[in-house]
Every structure is written in C-alpha cells, then in structure tokens.
Computed example of a mutant assay.
Amino acid sequence: MSGKRIAIAINSLAGGGAEKVVMTLASSLTAMGHEPHLLVLQNICQHEVAPELKVHYCFGAEERNIDGFWRLSNSVKRVKQWIAGLEAEYGKFDLFLSNLHQTNLMMTRVGVAPLYCVVHNAMEEELKRQRKLGPLAWFEMWRAQQALDGQHLIAVSEGLANELRHSKRIKPASVTTIYNPFELDTIRTLAEQRPADMPEGDYIIHVGRFARQKRHDVLFAALKVMQHQVPLVLLCSNRKKALKAVKKLGLEQRVIIPGFQQNPFPWIKNAKLLVLSSDYEGFGNVLLEALALNTPVVSTDCPHGPDEILGDALAHCLVPRRDPQALAAAMDRVLTQGVSLEQLPILDAVGAEHVAQQYLALAK
C-alpha cells in the first residue's frame, strides 16, 4: 500500500483520552510510512506532541463558542477554507477522521469525503447528563449527535457500536468497531520514569477529568467506607476543583492530587490498584493502560467498554454503577487477594499498528 494522507480532526489537544488516542494513531501511521495530519480546531494543547507529527490549528485559544448557534455557519466556512488551504499545500486527503462532538458538527457540514466520525462516548448517557444541566446544554448535545445521522461511524467499543446501530435518534450509514490504539511497548517504557513527587508507600489511583461523568463523588464515598486505609492519588486536569471537593468531604489526609501528568504511566504502574468509577465511558482507556502495566483494576460496569476490556477473566472486578459500598468492597477484595492478570486477549486487539491497519482499510 502506498502512503496515505489522512486528516485526523479533533476539538483541541487538551488533556483527555480522545486527544491521546488521536496522537497515538497519528504516531503509528507515521511509523508505518503514511502521512497523518492533526487538524485541531482550537489552539489548546496540554499534551507533549511528537515533533514528527504535522499539527494544524484553525481557531485561536481565545475564540469561544465557535460552534454556537449564531456562529456555526461562519465557523464552518472558515474550516472549509482552512482544509482547502491545507490540501492545496500538501495534497488531497485520502481519509478524514473526525473526533468529538464539536468537530463532528463542523466536519459533517464542511462536506469532506471520505469522512468517518469516531464516537468516543455513550450517546444516551451523555444526553441524560446534559439534560440535568438545562435545556440549552441538552439542545447543543442533541444537535451535535444529530450531525451523525446518515454518516459513517466508528465506535471505540462493541457495546457502543450496538447502541449506535439500535439508536432511535439517528440512522448511521454504517457502524464499524475499532478499538482505541495503544503503543504498549512505549507505555511500558515510559512507566519506568519515576517522578520525584510520587508517593513512597502503597496507594490506589484514579486517572481522568474531574467531571460529573467520572463520579468522583461515588469514589470518595467508597473511600470513606473501605477497610484498607490506602491513600488515593487523583490524576486530573482540574486540580483546584478536585481539592475543593476533597476538603468539603474532609478527605485531605486520604487523597493526593498531583494534577494532570504528561506521563501518567509510572503513577499507574506503581499503584496497588487503579479504579474507574464512571457513570459511562466509550471504552475506558485507563483500564487498558493499567492492565498493560500489570496493575489490578476495579471498575463500574458502565456503558460501554469496561466489560469488553476485562472480559470473563476479570468480570469479578466489575461492580454496579453509583454503588459506593460495592466499589469499596471490590477494592478491599482486590487489595487483599490480588488478581491474575495473565492471558488478557484484549491486549492483542489494541496494539497501535493493528488498529492503524483497520483505519487504513477505510481509505479507498
């Protein structure tokens, strides 16, 4: 196969799972002799971007509400001109991959082809969450999801793919499951770098945005009733907000908050346990990263991803959502008894090159 020029579009390169996914995919495609371009809507970057990656920004970091109702039309025109300029400079793209709602909203209106929208989160759960934030928040999410109607979609887990196939809100042109890519050898190498501020003793760890979806409130409630008095390390981007919540609950002595880490892998590797307490996910990247580093996990059995990652062998490490007692009991059990992390077939399915080949098959 001759080298393909692939545009991978996303809202920004802020600190999140989808952002890591697109950079891993781009790095793998580059290593395979292809030419990926990261088309980033807003010039916001919290990740360390490999120097060989081609990154292009459309809007400045200070430009707000670019997908707002009154601005969307002009923003779409600007994105269309931006992409036309990139293709004039580098040549036509063989494939467009769009990630996250804001970008999907833009790219489906720009009219590029062939276009695949990558869906990273449980759709119905996202709408439920936005409804609690008010009618405007719900409408903006609904509008972004409606943009997927009639589009070719990539789901990052089979559970998510089934939701999309049976959705009553949209009718996709196609739905394909492609797991998120992981450079497993790189993860293991990076895990050998020990930060100076890492705790010396035992600890459990949670990695993820300090957002309602991640249900830190359930995690903190579980922490209070655990038998093991092991500290909890939070790696999250909104440290100030997390600190405020911890102080409100009187957990300052139990919770360590280093904040967002460019390299979370040493923290994960040296933890006695990684916990995921989310209401919903699309895949659950941190579970996979922990298992790759031989770190035991406990997770809510949320839609979608954790059950596929843990499989039958680790199904006992799944607990019901929103149940602090069950979460605490599972963490205590794993800390006491341990778990076997041998023969996990999911690790073979998520290798970056294997995943990249699946994406390349979409470029006709």
Rank of each mutant, 00 (worst) to 15 (best):
F182C: 03
I178R: 04
P172S: 10
H166Q: 11
H166E: 12
E200S: 15
T186W: 15
D185G: 03
R169F: 03
D202Q: 14
I204R: 09
T186H: 12
L184Y: 05
Y179I: 08
K171V: 06
V175P: 00
T177G: 01
K168M: 12
H206V: 05
P172E: 12
Y179G: 00
I178Y: 01
S167L: 10
R165N: 08
T189S: 14
E200V: 09
F182S: 01
L184T: 13
R194A: 12
P172M: 05
E183R: 07
R169Y: 07
E200Y: 10
K168F: 04
D185I: 11
R165M: 11
K168A: 05
P181C: 09
T176W: 04
V175M: 03
R165H: 06
M198L: 14
I204M: 14
A191C: 08
P181D: 03
H206I: 01
E200C: 07
E163T: 15
I204H: 06
R194G: 01
E183T: 05
L164D: 03
A196H: 13
I204Y: 02
G201I: 06
R188Q: 13
P172A: 02
F182T: 03
D185V: 04
R165Y: 00
D202L: 08
A173L: 14
K171A: 12
D197W: 03
Q193G: 03
I205D: 01
Y179M: 00
R165D: 00
G201S: 14
M198A: 03
T177N: 11
T176S: 04
A191S: 15
G201K: 08
S167C: 11
Q193Y: 09
G201M: 13
E163G: 08
P172W: 00
P181K: 11
S167A: 07
T186F: 06
A196G: 04
I170C: 07
K171W: 10
S167R: 11
T189E: 13
Y203P: 13
M198D: 02
K168W: 05
D197Y: 06
